[in-house]
Write a protein that binds this DNA or RNA. Structure first.
Lengths: 194, 194
DNA sequence: GTCTATAGTTTGATAGAC
DNA sequence: GTCTATCAAACTATAGAC
């Protein structure tokens, strides 16, 4: 019987795909890499994902989407003021980057950037992720008293800046870009203060 | 005789590599794609780049580095106040993205993200590009009266945010993220006003 | 659901004539 | 410097036994 906590083959495959694609991209990740990393045979991979590599990438992006959304929601719920949430969120991202020794960037963008043009399902999945994250940040800002338009606008820049800073941190192998992104986003949020 | 304005085979190959990798990434771009796009034979490609694909990618990243650096320098020189430069710069990036129908993102990041971990020369080239861009923005801010530390800090966030917003614009196929990045960075710069 | 074997392409790179 | 031909390896995907 399947319980909620059992990690089946399908889940292992999705996680392995997300982990590998966030480090090597879409084209750079082979199905044999995935089946090895997931400890599943190639037959099992195709059993769960008959659509092949594209279907796997879409599932991996969905996984990365939920992962970052969970982080965002947790931090937004924990921190009272949205400006504090910006700093805390940047710190979480910085810790993750450093702990992985600058290997684990954003699984969504690393996978989507190189394939968005030729593989529409992948681009669509990435677009859904961005919209999801944007909504979480926007809701926190409106809950803090921002008017709807300002909250939506600032949320867009928050998402863009976190993405860019994570990328910069990965390339430069320092948390500098993320630390500064957190404090500057906090400053931006505070600049709208009553 | 080689004049400054002649575009030789080597240049065509570098440009073709940059153009293709900014759309398809490092692994997604084949040497045959490059030789076809550059209208050069495979023999010519290896004649100029005996180091193969890695050497090609490093040259392509250097090309993308100079391209964005030129754009930054032009805008910084044209606009008097750095806040105006942020808006103008975002607008230039937005125009380029829209004109290419959301295909041409940043050649540096698209190439480097998926390969930085396993190919150090590529990561190093990308790191040099980030440092170069950072220096240009920082110098504009110090010239405008910012103290050295603040200028350097803000310049980091400017580069991160432009990168992230360009990526977001590419995925969402709207200039929204870039437009907002420009105006929010201008707001950030102005918040340090005397 | 899991496994092995393999088909059919494409890849990065090299050799050698011109 | 340019070109063609080709290698060995890797790739995505499928077939079919269990």
């Amino acid at each position: 019987m399947r319980t909620k906590h059992e990690v089946g083959t399908r889940d292992r495959v999705v996680r392995a795909t997300a982990r590998l694609m966030q480090r090597q991209g879409y084209t750079g990740t082979g199905l044999k890499d995935i089946s090895r990393e997931a400890e599943a045979t190639l037959g099992s991979v195709y059993h769960f994902f008959p659509g092949g590599k594209v279907e796997l990438a879409v599932a991996a992006i969905g996984h990365g989407d939920r992962e970052f959304a969970d982080l965002l929601r947790t931090v937004m719920a924990r921190e009272d003021h949205p400006a504090d949430a910006m700093v805390a969120c940047a710190r979480e991202l910085a810790t993750g980057m450093r702990d992985s020794e600058w290997m684990d960037g954003c699984p969504v963008t690393t996978t989507a950037l190189e394939s968005a043009r030729r593989l529409p399902p992948i681009r669509d999945a990435a677009e859904r992720a961005f919209a999801n994250w944007h909504g979480i940040v926007r809701d926190k800002l409106t809950a803090a008293g921002f008017d709807d338009d300002t909250a939506s606008d600032v949320a867009h820049t928050v998402v863009s800046t976190f993405q860019g800073a994570e990328m910069t941190a990965q390339i430069t192998r320092t948390t500098t870009a993320l630390d500064l992104a957190g404090s500057h986003l906090a400053r931006l949020v505070r600049s709208y203060r009553e």
